[in-house]
Every structure is written in structure tokens, then in C-alpha cells.
């Protein structure tokens, strides 16, 4: 029976394009062009990583790159791992290390807060607080950088003034070599800015949970703690997993503004905030002689590793729980 049905359907699938299809294609053509120009064409740009870039004066970048630069194999990568090994290790350590901390805290804290806020008696208070906690998400890192500066500025900053009034010496937060507190500041700022956003995702899922589940649990004598452990968290699991995969897929990316703006790109702190994105940006736009080759080698690894981690994370998840997987 089913075979006959299949045979009936198949020729339909192979039928010619309808007017509908053409119209829909034309409707989405501008977006298609946008994706080609801004996403697909740049993908070929990663080939720069395998070229020895040489400027051809007056001919523009593209000409220099295609005709004037020779293929150089893995030389750019060798530079990263030999001559430049210290920065390279620091940027990989920072990119992945910070991201792992961000992923853990970015799940634990918002889930905990979302569960707690659903327990508050006053829904008005809950909404009021949630709105305020959402505020940092709407601010750019430039603005946040100024906030940080207001607290940490050497001369006028609030923290140093408090330290002074308590009889301590003021600290040069931005200039002191190897300042040990910056990793904590960076983690705090990331949590501070994103907690409202993540909380809302989990709050919406908690509100979507069928209330009769809790009623049944209460009748069976479950405590609030048990309800959370056996109803709320298991039902939040799919959302947590999706948020987790998306975060893991970006593990080689970093929120550029966080690392670049809040630290003011200070040379003394470089080792505690340099990530792949910061390195690429600095070597392209902040150096007197832009080092295209090395920057693109770093960028190439970022693209490839990022793709591999996302696909791997998704494959692992879909093995355990097919429904929660991303694709």
C-alpha cells in the first residue's frame, strides 16, 4: 500500500517549476544576494591565510592579493606557533577559557534566577526587577566601557577614591602590568550584561510548563525543592541544551567589545584579555604595518574550529537526545 502511495507522489515532486516557485524565488532574491555578498563571498577570503601578502602600490588590495602574493603553504601558521607563540597561546587560552566559564555561568545563574523569580509572591516586583536586569543587554560595550572607567579610573574613579578614604594606596587598574583582577572583571561584566537576556529565555519556558504537573506534585506531597528538581529542571532541559549548543558553537568566537572596549585595549593587560578576535583586529587595524597573513591564519583557525565544535556538539547531543538537537 505504502509503495503505491510513494509511486503516486514521486512524479509530482519532479514536476516543473510552478509560477509560485518563481515568484517566491524572486521575492527572496534580494536576501539571497545579500547572503552571497556578505556571507558566501567572504568565505573564499580565508585563502589569504595560505598566501604571502605583498603590497602592489596603487593597485588596491585585491589585485595585490591575487596576482602579487605567492602561495606560501603553512608559513603564516608557523609564525603564529613559533615566533609569536606566547601571544598565540594566550589568545587561544583566553578565547576558549573565558568561553567555558561564560557557558557554565551563563546557564547556572540565569536558570537559578529564573526559577527563583517564579517563586516571588509579588508578580509586580518580579516584573519590575526583571525589566531592570534586562537593561544592560540593550547597552553597547562602548557605553559599558565608560561605566567601567567611571569606577576604575586611576585618578577620579570611585573605587580608588574609596580605597584612598580607607587609607589604602590607589591602584592603577588599567596600567599595572599583569593585574590579576581583570579576568574576574571580564567574567563579571559578561554575566552582568547577559543575565537578563538568558533569564528571559528560561522564564518563558518555566511559564510554559503545564501547571497541573505542579498541582499533582503538591497533592503527592512534593516539596518546593522536589518540584524544582523533578519537574522544572527536566522540562527546562531542551532549552538548556539548545542554548548550550549555540554557546559551544561560538567557543572560538569572542564578544569583541567586551574584551576590547572595557579593557581599553591596554598594553599592560594584553595577556589577560587578548582573544582571537582582538588579535585579528589589532593586527589589521591598530598596527602601523597590517599583518594580513598572520591575522588571516588566526581567523582561518577560528572559522574552522568553530564549525567543527558546533557540528560535534550537535552530533553528541543528537546521540543522547534526538529531539533536543539543533539540526
Amino acid at each position: 500500500m505504502s509503495q503505491i502511495a510513494k509511486k503516486d507522489i514521486k512524479p509530482k515532486k519532479k514536476s516543473k517549476l510552478t509560477l509560485d516557485d518563481i515568484q517566491l524565488f524572486l521575492l527572496s532574491l534580494p536576501t539571497t544576494i545579500w547572503f552571497i555578498m556578505f556571507c558566501y563571498v567572504p568565505m573564499f577570503g580565508i585563502l589569504i591565510a595560505f598566501k604571502k601578502y605583498k603590497v602592489a602600490p596603487g593597485k588596491g588590495f585585491l589585485w595585490s592579493l591575487v596576482y602579487n602574493s605567492k602561495w606560501c603553504g603553512l608559513d603564516n601558521f608557523k609564525f603564529l606557533f613559533k615566533s609569536n607563540a606566547k601571544t598565540t597561546i594566550a589568545m587561544f587560552r583566553n578565547t576558549v577559557g573565558y568561553n567555558i566559564v561564560f557557558i557554565v555561568l551563563g546557564i547556572v545563574i540565569p536558570v537559578a534566577l529564573a526559577i527563583i523569580i517564579s517563586h516571588l509572591y509579588s508578580k509586580k516586583l518580579a516584573k519590575f526587577c526583571q525589566t531592570l536586569i534586562f537593561l544592560p543587554h540593550f547597552l553597547s560595550w562602548v557605553i559599558v566601557g565608560y561605566f567601567v572607567y567611571a569606577f576604575l579610573a586611576t585618578k577620579e574613579g570611585l573605587v580608588n577614591n574609596v580605597l584612598l578614604s580607607m587609607g589604602f594606596d590607589p591602584v592603577k587598574w588599567y596600567q599595572k602590568e599583569g593585574m590579576p583582577y581583570w579576568p574576574y572583571f571580564i567574567v563579571f561584566l559578561n554575566v552582568w550584561k547577559n543575565v537578563g537576556y538568558n533569564m528571559i529565555v528560561y522564564m518563558a519556558s518555566i511559564n510554559g510548563i503545564d501547571g497541573s504537573l505542579y498541582e499533582a506534585a503538591v497533592i503527592d506531597g512534593a516539596t518546593k525543592h522536589q518540584q524544582t528538581k523533578y519537574i522544572t529542571i527536566p522540562l527546562l532541559k531542551p532549552v538548556i541544551i539548545i542554548m548550550f549548543i549555540m554557546a559551544v558553537g561560538r567557543i572560538f568566537n569572542s564578544d569583541f567589545g567586551l574584551f576590547y572596549r572595557t579593557t581599553r585595549n591596554s598594553a599592560a593587560l594584553y595577556n589577560s584579555f587578548v582573544t582571537l578576535d582582538v588579535y585579528v583586529y589589532n593586527s589589521l587595524f591598530n598596527s602601523t604595518i597590517p599583518t594580513y597573513g598572520y591575522a588571516s591564519a588566526a581567523g582561518f583557525m577560528q572559522s574552522v574550529f568553530g564549525c567543527v565544535t558546533l557540528v560535534t556538539a550537535n552530533a553528541i547531543v543528537s546521540k543522547f537526545d534526538k529531539e533536543s538537537a539543533f539540526f
Binding site: 555578498m37 589569504i48 588590495f61 581567523g299 572559522s303
Partner: peptide, 18 residues
């Protein structure tokens, strides 16, 4: 494009030169 990106440099080259 969500999985694989060209990166800052490649986008910069395409946007400025092309």
C-alpha cells in the same frame, strides 16, 4: 553562514575592495 564564517579580514576585503 551560521556554521562557517569568513572572518573579519575576509569581510573587510570584500566590503572595501569589491
Amino acid at each position: 553562514p551560521m556554521l562557517f564564517r569568513g572572518g573579519t579580514l575576509a569581510s573587510y576585503v570584500v566590503n572595501t575592495q569589491v
